[in-house]
Every structure is written in C-alpha cells, then in structure tokens.
C-alpha cells in the first residue's frame, strides 16, 4: 500500500491478500452469532405446539386460540358453509385453492387469524363476517370466505393453515 519501493511485489501482495482475506473471514464469523441471536431462541422454538379442546364449539361457532403469539381460528362449519366453500369455482379466487386442500375434516376449519395483507386480526363474529360469510378485516377491507380464502380486498393470499392434528374427535393439536 504505502511503500512502493519493495523488492518482491508478488510475494508481498500475496501476503497482504491472504491476511486481508483471513480478516474478512474472521469478521464474517463474528457477525454470524450477532445476527443469529435475534432468531427465535430454543425455548421459543420448543413452545411451538398448543392443544385445544374443541368439544364445546357448537356448529357455526368458533374458537380463537393463541399459537406462537398469534390467534388461530378454529371454526365448526355448518353444512351450508361447507357447501358454499365447495361450490366456489377456482376461477373466482385470487389465490386458487380447493376447500379440500385446506381442511382435514370438512366441518373443522383451522386457520391462522392474521390477515395476509398487513397482519391485522380479521373479524369473524356473526354479523361482521364480510361479504363472503367468512372473515372481514377492518383495517383495509379484505373479505375472506368460509374456507378462509381471500375473495375481495387488498390481501394477496388466503389465510394460512397451520400444521395441526386431531389427537381425538375432541382434541386438536396445533403446531
């Protein structure tokens, strides 16, 4: 760098390049823990499942449970709601997905209760379910149907379906 008057420019340059490269590797290796520490820690990762008793949810009713700090909607769908969901042609959907791909048992719909637009919690009480009888997000006017699929409004995708299992007819494990 500073002293041009050197005898063996190539060996000298090699040495500088090697030292610089090792310094860069070291800086990178130190940077990684600093970044990684902000990822979910081991206790957060371990808490990733929630068990829910669904025996008390009446037909047409729903339950909101907290999973990973977010609401999950468990809706006990009526025959009419299931039929609506099945009858909707895929062509009408901004994010085409069949109802069958979104449920494990037709009468139970389990979706993450977070609007895919900007993260608000959509309304789902009777009377405020939006134009498609599913959910309505009041923040920016997204309408979801009885399968939790986006039908109208700015949200780009359907409500997410978490991984879940039926431990029994009345017991659900989310996560």
């Amino acid at each position: 760098m500073a002293n041009p008057s050197t005898v063996e420019p190539t060996r000298r340059d090699m040495l500088f390049i090697a030292t610089g490269a090792v310094a860069a590797v070291g800086a990178g290796a130190v940077a990684w823990p600093l970044v990684s520490q902000m990822n979910p820690d081991a206790s957060t990762l371990a808490l990733a499942s929630t068990e829910v008793d669904i025996s008390a949810i009446p037909e047409g009713g729903s339950l909101t449970v907290k999973w990973r700090g977010k609401p999950v909607f468990v809706r006990h769908r009526t025959k009419k709601e299931i039929d609506e969901a099945l009858a909707t042609p895929l062509a009408q959907l901004p994010d085409p997905q069949t109802d069958a791909a979104r449920v494990k048992k037709p009468e139970w719909l389990v979706v993450v209760g977070v609007c895919t637009h900007l993260g608000c919690v959509p309304l789902g009480a009777p009377g405020s379910r939006g134009e498609y009888d599913g959910w309505f997000c009041p923040c920016h006017g997204s309408h979801y149907d009885t399968s939790g699929r986006i039908r109208k409004g700015p949200a780009p995708t359907n409500l997410a379906v978490p991984t879940y299992d039926f431990l029994s007819d009345t017991k659900l494990r989310i996560g």
Binding site: A2, N3, S5, T6, R12, L15, F16, A18, T19, V22, A23, V25, G26, A29
Partner: peptide, 19 residues
C-alpha cells in the same frame, strides 16, 4: 483461526516495517 491470523499479521507487519 486466531493463530493463523496472527501469524499472517506478524509477517505482514514485518514486511511493512522492513523499510
């Protein structure tokens, strides 16, 4: 890693200070 690094730095330092 640090031993390799410090070795390289030692020679770099020597080279630069040689003059």
């Amino acid at each position: 890693f640090l031993f390799v690094f410090v070795g390289l730095l030692y020679f770099t330092k020597k080279r630069i200070w040689a003059d």
